[in-house]
Amino acid sequence: MEFEIWQLVLLFGVALAAGFVDAVAGGGGLICIPALLAVGVPPHAALATNKLQGSFGTLSASINFIKKGYIKFSDIYIGIIFTLIGAVLGTVIVLLVKAEFLNYIMPVLLLGIFLYTLFSPAMGEKDKDAKMSKNAFYIIFGLLLGFYDGFFGPGTGSLWVFAFLALLGLNMRQAVANTKVMNFTSNIVSLAVFLVGGHILWMVGLVMAAGQIIGGYLGANLVITKDTKYIKWIFLTVVGATILKLFIS
């Protein structure tokens, strides 16, 4: 496919905005995929190209969080391993089973997360006692959410953030930082599958990747510098928009 300069500039800007939003609260794919479809990219190529450019955004945000000391690999390496395993399983099974039924389950699940977070005023403002052990958490949710991201995808970042807040008792800043590493892990698995399939539009993907790198870095900086209450309201806004998008589609 050939694209005009204005289309590439538009997609760069969309990716920058999506990388920023995704670094703060997840949901970047819900911005990028409609934009790719709007400029005439076929659905399968849009999904593949989105994984390419999105991987750069989660990597950029992850590196920023690592440099600022918010990621402790000694705490999360089990989560990385089991997220990788779950994503591989989900990606393999999606080739065999249709995932359309998740279109009906996901909005309801996210609505529950939205309401629970909204009506828990202190949630995410400071660290709290964990409701389960770290190892059990990372094994269970690494497999579940890694599988989900490989199988379906939308809302994965929001699910991770909520799980970190509700079950490990992390503050919002730390929850978002850890989420980016888990997102990057499962994104890489899906990207590998799309690479084999040959559906990626490389020029478009790399132009958008440049936007994602900038947006992901800026979004991570916002999380690092702003008060956790501010981050929480951005998170609720993104989850609410995701719910509307899933219900409408």
Rank of each mutant, 00 (worst) to 15 (best):
F114M: 04
A87C: 03
I113M: 15
V94Y: 03
I105N: 08
L89C: 09
I80W: 07
L96C: 07
D129R: 08
V92L: 12
A122L: 13
M123F: 07
I81H: 05
N103A: 11
N103L: 14
G79P: 02
V108S: 11
G112F: 10
D129L: 11
G112R: 06
A99T: 05
Y104F: 13
L84H: 08
Y104D: 11
A99Y: 06
G79F: 01
S120V: 06
I105K: 08
L95P: 06
A130H: 05
L115K: 03
D129K: 11
L115A: 09
I105R: 07
L96A: 09
L109P: 04
V108F: 15
M106F: 06
M123G: 03
G86V: 00
G86M: 00
V108D: 11
T91S: 14
L95A: 12
M106A: 09
A87E: 00
D127M: 02
A87N: 03
G79H: 00
M106S: 07
K98R: 09
M106P: 01
K128N: 13
K98E: 12
V92D: 05
V97A: 06
L110V: 08
V97M: 10
D127I: 04
F82A: 05
P121L: 05
P107T: 02
L102I: 01
N103D: 12
E125S: 10
T91L: 01
P121R: 05
Y116V: 14
K131R: 13
L84N: 12
L110K: 05
Y104P: 06
E125N: 11
I81W: 10
L118H: 05
M106V: 15
I93L: 15
V92N: 07
L84G: 09
I105C: 10
K126N: 12
E125I: 14
S120N: 15
V94A: 09
E125Q: 09
Y116E: 13
T83Y: 04
G79A: 09
I85Y: 04
I93N: 06
A130Q: 07
I85G: 04
L110R: 04
L95F: 11
I93C: 08
P121S: 09
M106E: 02
E100C: 07
I93T: 09
N103I: 08
L118P: 00
M106W: 02
A99M: 06
G79Q: 02
I81L: 15
E100T: 03
D129A: 13
V94C: 04
I113L: 14
E125C: 07
L110H: 03
A130M: 11
D127W: 01
F82P: 00
V94W: 00
L84D: 02
P121E: 04
I81T: 14
L109Q: 04
D127P: 04
L102V: 00
I93K: 05
K128R: 15
F114P: 00
